[in-house]
Design a protein around this nucleic acid. Structure first.
Length: 955
RNA sequence: GGGCGAGUGGCGGAAUGGCAGACGCGCUGGCUUCAGGUGCCAGUGAGGGCAACCUCGUGGGGGUUCAAGUCCCCCCUCGCCCACCA
């Protein structure tokens, strides 16, 4: 039975739509069939140039390499909503487009599956996190496949797979086995440091010959230099989570990023990575990256490089160093302020002041940052009773403590220059401290503050900051008076400080070293054991991976969130039989204790893009030739191209954490000679978010957004008024739309098309379910233009297209190619709809238009495009079919229409030959009846002709 | 307080300094239908006019230009990031 009769149709179809209309049911049928065929034919497998996935001939035939990457997801148990795959659809469209324009595209998807949520879910349900994680990964793979994403399935990785984290541990050992050579400005293997120490080329810290050091002393010297080391340093202890966390995971109000528990600064022995050694390179190499300025600025601010000077002030407790960006204002430093946590506070406090100081310190420590903010910027502090000596004036200046000076930045102490710093100015004003003028502000400054020009600072409303001549700024050997440049003042002061041993120019960073250990279960174990003296040893490669031991006791020990003095306890500590291990590390069999920390969740995401390139390699984390092929520097793109992924798409929320850590690891691996690329991500594109309305009732509780009714601009739920707000789509706001609903109603191609059409990829935009139907109608019109809805026969004709249609086709090809290349899919879609709307009006669709139209749509709606391509008589997948190329001859018409403006307003339009010269265009414009009427007899002063664009007559 | 970005119809959004509002939603009218829906066709920035057309119009105010949504200055609003960083 090949034909259906009309009568059958009306009985079998409740909606009496024609039997072969492009409906949701047909879309689903097409989509599932093609997804199966792609799998069966291994359509999206991408050849490497060599190695296990190597096929050099196919790789060459596919064309130029292109590596397209998504930020890989965390496989949560909640399932996807339509907001999640926005970026994935974008990269898929781009990858498919690039395959059709002669590129060998690496495109894969992995899962960032270690971390707290899986563990917390496991604790709640009693299910082992491995089980729930595997289930979630499987679910997510299925959901992503249903969208038709063209990933190479062989290259998918999960960070929790021992075959993957074996290499995460191996990289850790590389970092552990490296030190930073500040002269060569790169990391080097620790063996080279030992060789230099042994030969005497590099002196030991205390100058004694290497041979005279005991074995223990040697280990201390070496361990002190490692890029990954166990340090006893102030860390962020979060009792509520039962683990320490990195600075980057602590919010501005001193709470944990996850869980929102209080975080306390405590000294503890923890793993630390020396990311600060790379601070300059992490800033400087941003210039070589094709990233948005917004993200680059965030990274620069986070690293927070500022140049200035360390100045040493004499005091009864010895020299106190302060950091300042304005050493030139030293003559105006009339007091000094220490942070309440500063180690010298006790030594600098007189007995008379000790009660007041102790009370203030206690209050400062208890006060949470959030309370400090509540109090606004009102400065508080107490004097210690002692004084320091200002090195340029020789004057005794009082030492205060105040909580506006932070222990975590600079040296935790400042020189206070009240006339040149607003905070110091406020503090001095409050406590009646001296405010000598050291610069003569310009008249404009006084005018702006509406006061007369005076050096009486008591009448200034604010401190002065900027270039202005110095006054009161000289001693016997340094004279800044009259100089009106801050840069020059800084230079002269720094010279003087260094010459007189009172200080030196220096650079300070906000970036701290990276706290790398966590007292949790669901993470990568450290490949480290300790001997009886507590010294760490990296396990040799052949003992990797150190598998996460199976246990039912994976709950972390958490504490009362406010119990600052609790101590972390790793779940792995409880596994005595795993912790104690007998090994031969080249020194005979001995007992060791394993490290019981796990790595932070960021570890696995620091290098996953590298593993995509060579996922099955069990000899190396990546074959150097494979890495060089996919990620090597592209000097053809720009001379200082650092290499890396060609396009990385993800949300802006990873601006500092993941993107900084991954760059750091990549640079270490580059320094150690394992990589050809200096950076992991050459180009970064931040996609927007899908937003949706969310509604709260009177109790401020979110209510299901789909039960809300709108009446006259107000919103109601069960008849009661609710308030509308705006947020990211998600379960917590109760406004998530599932992709399954969209497949059911329209199919995956419509969903893909809608997400790409709703706006530019980098902009956030609101989800509107009712708008989706527009793209569905477009696909129906497309289908109808090629397939008879009653008979399912192809209705494309072989007669040539008329001239107008052909020209429109080629203009569309020209634009769509450019727009897709620039990731502007929304405008590409608009052009394709225009073309289709034109084709719809023709009596029949010419093949010469139908085929390129299908090919142009293939990246966006791959299933329906494959189906139409197949029905048009092609056996091969569209995936590697060449994308249409516009014929330049058809981009220009024989005639061109010019709007004619009179004084900037359009008054008429003329049509002239495309090769009419300026004079001819002008003559035609001035002859146009409407233009003549608008000019109304006046003599044109000037006629501007913009060739191909327009004419403007000025009268 | 600092940095970055954005303000265009009822809505999402288009516009290398050169015809503002492409494309889609919604809305209005029509065709199809017993009907509803679906589908199709046409119209749709505001105001005026029977009409051809005219006037106004891209957050507000100034400026540059033959020409400004676009460039410059000031202001307002919103979003994001950082925030007593010495």
């Amino acid at each position: 039975m090949s034909e259906q009769s009309p009568s059958e149709t009306s009985h079998t179809n409740a909606t009496d739509a024609p039997p072969h209309r492009y409906t949701a049911a047909l879309a689903q049928e097409i989509e599932l069939a093609w997804q199966e065929r792609w799998d069966a034919e291994r359509t999206f497998e991408t050849p490497n140039p060599t190695g296990l996935l190597g096929d050099p001939e196919l790789a060459a035939a596919r064309g130029e390499k292109l590596f397209v990457l998504d930020m890989f997801p965390y496989p949560s148990g909640a399932g996807l909503h339509v907001g999640h795959p926005l970026g994935f659809i974008g990269t898929d469209v781009y990858s498919r487009f690039k395959r059709m324009t002669g590129h060998n595209v690496l495109y894969s998807m992995g899962f960032d599956a270690f971390g707290l949520p899986a563990e917390q879910f496991a604790v709640q349900t009693g299910q082992h996190p491995k089980i729930t994680t595997d289930q979630n990964v499987a679910t997510m793979r299925r959901q992503l496949r249903r969208l038709g994403l063209s990933h190479d399935p062989r290259r998918s990785v999960a960070t929790t797979d021992p075959g993957y984290y074996r290499w995460t541990q191996w990289i850790f050992n590389q970092i552990f086995g490296a030190w930073y050579d500040t002269e060569l400005d790169r990391a080097r293997p620790i063996a080279e440091l030992i060789a230099e120490l042994e030969s005497g080329a590099r002196p030991t810290p205390d100058g004694r010959p290497w041979a005279e050091l005991t074995e223990g002393e040697r280990r201390d010297v070496i361990d002190d230099r490692r890029l990954a080391f166990v340090g006893d340093a102030p860390v962020n202890w979060c009792p509520g989570l039962g683990t320490v966390v990195a600075n980057e995971e602590v919010t501005a109000d001193g709470r944990s990023d996850r869980g929102n528990f209080p975080v306390f600064k405590r000294n503890m022995r923890q793993w630390v990575m020396r990311i600060t050694s790379y601070a300059d390179r992490l800033i400087d190499d941003l210039d070589t990256l094709d990233w948005t300025d917004a993200i680059k600025t965030m990274q620069r601010n986070w690293i927070g490089r500022s140049s200035g000077a360390l100045v040493h002030f004499g005091s009864p407790a010895g020299p106190i160093s302060v950091f300042t960006t304005r050493p030139d204002t030293l003559f105006g430093a009339t007091f000094m302020v220490l942070s309440p946590e500063h180690p010298l506070v006790d030594a600098l406090t007189t007995p008379e002041q000790s009660l007041a100081v102790a009370a203030y310190r206690r209050a400062a420590i208890i006060k949470k940052d959030i309370e400090r903010q509540d109090e606004g910027r009102e400065k508080t502090g107490v004097p210690t009773g002692m004084s320091a000596v200002n090195p340029v004036t020789g004057a005794d200046i009082p030492i205060w403590i105040a909580d506006y000076v932070l222990m975590g930045y600079g040296t935790g102490a400042i020189m206070a220059v009240p006339s040149g710093d607003q905070r110091d100015f406020e503090f001095a004003g409050k406590y009646g401290l001296e405010i000598p003028a050291i610069q003569q502000p310009p008249a404009t400054w006084f005018a702006a503050h509406d006061i007369e020009s005076t050096l009486d600072t008591a009448r200034w409303p604010v401190a002065f900051v900027g270039d202005a001549p110095y006054v009161n700024s000289s001693n016997e050997s340094l004279d800044l008076n009259g100089i009106d440049s801050v840069a020059e003042g800084v230079r002269l002061t720094n010279e003087w400080l260094e010459a007189n041993g009172h200080g030196e120019a220096t650079i300070t960073y906000k970036l701290r070293d990276w706290l790398f250990s966590r007292q949790r279960y669901w993470g990568e174990p450290f490949p480290i054991v300790y001997d009886d003296d507590g010294r760490p040893y990296a396990l040799p490669d052949e003992m990797l991976p150190v598998e996460l031991p199976d246990t039912t006791s994976f709950s972390p020990r958490t504490f009362d969130p406010d119990d600052e003095f609790s101590d972390p306890e790793s779940p792995l500590d409880r596994l005595e039989s795993w912790v104690n291990v007998e090994l031969d590390l080249g020194d005979g069999r001995k007992w060791y204790r394993r490290d019981t920390n796990v790595m932070p969740q960021w570890a696995g995401s620091c290098w996953y893009e590298l593993r995509y390139t060579d996922p099955t390699n069990d000899q190396a984390f990546v074959d150097p030739a494979v890495e060089a092929y996919w990620m090597g520097p592209r000097t053809d793109v720009r001379p200082d191209h650092p290499g890396g992924v060609d396009l990385y798409v993800g949300g802006v929320e990873h601006a500092v954490l993941h993107l900084l850590y991954a760059r750091f690891w990549h640079k270490v691996l580059y320094d150690l000679g394992h990589l050809s690329s200096k950076e992991p991500y050459a180009r970064l594109f931040n996609q927007g978010y899908i937003l949706a309305d969310a509604y709260k009732d009177e109790r401020e509780i979110y209510i299901d957004a789909f039960d809300v009714e709108e009446r006259d601009g107000a919103y109601y739920h069960d008849g009661r008024p609710v308030t509308r707000e705006w947020g990211k789509m998600g379960k917590s706001l109760k406004n998530a739309v599932s992709p399954d609903e969209m497949y059911e109603a329209y199919g995956a191609d419509t969903l893909r098309l809608y997400e790409m059409a709703m706006g530019p990829l980098d902009a956030s935009r609101p989800w509107e379910t009712r708008d989706v139907v527009g793209m569905y109608r477009f696909l129906q019109r497309l289908w109808r233009a090629m397939v008879d809805e009653t008979t399912s026969e192809i209705v494309v004709v072989d007669e040539p297209a008329d001239d107008e249609t052909r020209r429109l086709l080629h203009r569309t090809i020209d634009t769509v190619r450019r727009e897709m290349d620039a990731l502007r899919f929304n405008t590409a879609i608009a052009k394709l709809i225009e073309l289709n709307n034109h084709v719809t009006k023709l009596d029949a669709t010419p093949r010469e238009v139908a085929e390129p139209m299908v090919l142009m749509l293939a990246p966006l709606v791959p299933h329906v495009a494959e189906e139409l391509w197949h029905r048009l008589g092609h056996d091969e997948t569209v995936t590697y079919t060449e994308f249409p190329v516009a014929d330049p001859a058809l981009l220009l018409d024989d005639t061109v229409e010019y709007p004619v403006q009179v004084n900037g307003k359009v008054r008429g339009r003329i049509t002239v030959s495309v090769d009419a010269d300026r004079a001819a265009v002008e003559a035609a414009a001035l002859a146009d009846a409407k233009v003549v009427a608008a000019i109304d007899g006046a003599v044109p002063k000037k006629v501007i002709v913009v060739p191909g664009k327009m004419v403007n007559v000025v009268v």
